[in-house]
Simulated assay, not measured.
Amino acid sequence: MPPVVQQPGAPQQTLFQKLSMGAAMGTGVGLCIGFIGGAFQILRAGPGPRGTLATLGQFMGTSAATFGFFMSIGTVIRTDSSHALEARAYTAASRPMLLRPEVRAHLRRREEE
């Protein structure tokens, strides 16, 4: 599915929408990882006294909760930035690099060789 094109002036996602999207993605990943890890553990050491489904469900539940929690926080941190900060970082990155005269001379000599 192609990414959604943002129209100029379109409303941004709210903090809660970003948080819930990260939690949903993390929960899905956690369920898959929990299933793989739980199935491997059951095959390796046996299901234990609670039974196969309860053990597998516990693995999947704890993994989903952990991944969902950290992914929701990570998504909010990663996407939480203002346009002013991005513009300032862009202009700082596009400025010419200031070099000491001896370094500039050394680089010129290297280019001529």
Rank of each mutant, 00 (worst) to 15 (best):
P2Q: 03
V4A: 12
V4G: 00
V5D: 13
V5Q: 08
V5H: 07
Q7H: 05
P8V: 02
P8Y: 01
P8A: 05
G9T: 06
A10H: 06
Q12V: 09
Q12L: 13
Q12F: 06
Q13F: 14
Q13N: 09
T14H: 05
T14Y: 02
L15P: 01
L15C: 03
F16C: 04
K18G: 04
M21K: 15
G22K: 08
G22F: 06
A23C: 08
A24F: 05
M25A: 07
T27Y: 03
G30D: 03
G30H: 02
L31A: 10
L31C: 02
L31K: 01
C32N: 10
I33F: 10
I33H: 08
G34M: 08
G34F: 09
F35D: 02
F35G: 11
I36D: 00
I36Q: 01
G37F: 12
G37C: 15
A39G: 15
A39E: 09
A39Y: 14
Q41R: 13
Q41M: 13
Q41A: 14
I42Y: 11
G46L: 03
P47K: 06
P49T: 03
P49K: 11
R50H: 12
L53R: 04
L53M: 13
T55W: 04
T55I: 05
L56N: 07
G57F: 00
M60N: 01
G61Y: 00
G61W: 05
G61H: 05
T62G: 07
T62P: 00
S63M: 13
S63L: 14
S63N: 06
A65K: 13
T66C: 12
F67K: 00
F67H: 04
F67S: 11
G68Q: 01
F69A: 08
F70S: 13
F70R: 02
M71F: 10
M71K: 03
M71W: 15
S72M: 14
I73S: 03
I73M: 09
G74W: 04
G74L: 14
G74T: 09
V76S: 03
V76H: 00
I77K: 08
I77E: 02
T79S: 09
D80Y: 10
D80L: 13
S81P: 03
S82D: 07
H83D: 11
H83E: 09
H83G: 11
A84D: 09
E86C: 03
A87N: 10
A87F: 10
R88I: 12
A89V: 10
Y90N: 09
T91S: 06
A92F: 02
A93T: 14
A93S: 14
R95F: 00
M97N: 10
L98T: 11
L98D: 12
L99V: 05
L99Y: 06
R100Y: 11
V103M: 14
A105I: 08
A105T: 13
H106W: 14
L107C: 05
L107T: 02
R108K: 08
R108I: 15
E111F: 06
E112Y: 08
E112D: 15
